[in-house]
Design a protein around this nucleic acid. Sequence first.
DNA 1: TGAATTGTTATCGT
DNA 2: AACGATAACAATTC
Length: 268
Amino acid sequence: MPELPEVETIVRAVRPRLFGRTIVAFDSRWPKNVEPGLSAVRRAVVGRRVAAVARRGKYVVLGFDDGAALLVHLRMSGRLEWAADHAPEPPHVRATWDLDDGGRLLLCDARKFGRVMHTRDLAAATADLGPEPLARGFTPDVLGGLLRARRRQLKPLLLDQRVIAGLGNIYTDEALHRAGLHPLTPSDRLRAADVARLHAAIRAVLREAIRCHGTSLDWIYPGGWMQRRLRVYGRTGEPCRTCGTPIVGLRVGQRGTHVCPRCQPRRR
DNA sequence: TGAATTGTTATCGT
DNA sequence: AACGATAACAATTC
């Protein structure tokens, strides 16, 4: 399930072959997930040069010269691959981009949740996203302000893309464990030292995961090795790497959640 | 068979 | 009324 580190890894992987290329054809075999519609997007991008390949939150952003952009969200199981010459097409191809150098980028997605959306105004289209947690401006004070502005359980709050962009289920659990905070802690109950630890934990775990090219837990996302370093996610019943206490699985806001009851005591 | 997964939307409760 | 919690949903794999 691509979160910020996986999307960042994908963007870095496709950028060299995509940057500066002109799109000569676009097609979708699941046009339901193309906004505002296949023909409109085709009209908007065919003949355009890709002036930027970037990431915003969990979106892959193909930027054009005039501020228009194509946003690709991989949701649960989407991936971007390059078509290989004379090789059979990989399974679950949902959308294709043909480039002026003969390259062909594929959006593959078993579950069909992935989306492609075109916007004339990238800033407007991403206005609802919270700050980038790895950006320079994301200071402990900024995080503290976001937490204090609401009174919500920490985990659902951190998962809310309008609050912070890019965290998903894996790295939220990992950041909370590293910060020694329970996922159910009310967001307005943190002291300055807690906020500072959470801020550092979020950034450290995301940076480490990017260095590892993300987490590969199953068939969905191959290539990364962060799964070896996860401390709680998917480790229910296994000993905490810090204190040896068995990791406990619980459900928070319909999400599978993993905590060490000793390192992350419940507080309220 | 049911659980798991993301993010949006609708709905319910305080 | 505004906010937060909750549920349903899209579709597929194991």
